[in-house]
Simulated assay, not measured.
Amino acid sequence: MFCNPPWSTNGDGSAKHDWLQKARTEASRDAVDVVVMLLPADTSAHWFHDHVLEAEAICLVGPGRIPFIGENRNPSFQLSISVFGEVQRPLLDALDTLGAVIRGKTVYEPAIQTRFGGDRR
């Protein structure tokens, strides 16, 4: 399933949040293998951190832009492609032709240390 949710918002990003929540819900159903969403690469938005970072794969498109066939204009902002559900190799290969592909949902969380370099004396 491919989704291109509305890019305009009422200022709070709630439309993107709702679309992304639905995409994640659908991707977890047995009847759906994968959901692919084209979105702005807005890393400052709450919806990006709440949902996009939970994707099985993210493609940060670039350098350059994706040309839209039949349109005389293209977005003036960077795009991302988020994949929820089972990611197959052919899809990863296709995404790789568009930009940098990030796999997995692991975010680095450093261990709390009391002293730099451990407890050496």
Rank of each mutant, 00 (worst) to 15 (best):
R103Y: 06
R120P: 04
T25C: 07
S80Q: 05
A31H: 13
V35S: 03
P67Y: 04
R120A: 08
G13V: 01
L53W: 05
G64P: 07
L20H: 00
V35A: 15
V61D: 02
E86T: 09
H46Y: 03
V36I: 13
L20N: 06
P75I: 00
L60Y: 05
D93T: 14
E109A: 08
V61S: 09
H17N: 01
H46Q: 12
V32D: 09
D12V: 05
A45T: 10
M1Q: 14
D30H: 12
I112N: 04
T97A: 12
G85Q: 03
M1C: 13
D119S: 03
G99H: 02
A15M: 11
H46M: 14
A111R: 03
R29S: 08
S44I: 14
D50H: 03
P6G: 06
R73D: 03
D12H: 05
D96A: 11
L91Q: 04
R115F: 06
V36Y: 01
H17L: 07
V32R: 01
A111T: 08
A27I: 03
R121C: 11
Q113N: 08
R103T: 10
L20Q: 00
F77K: 01
T25V: 05
K105R: 15
F48N: 00
D93F: 04
S44D: 10
W19L: 06
F77W: 05
Q113G: 09
L53D: 02
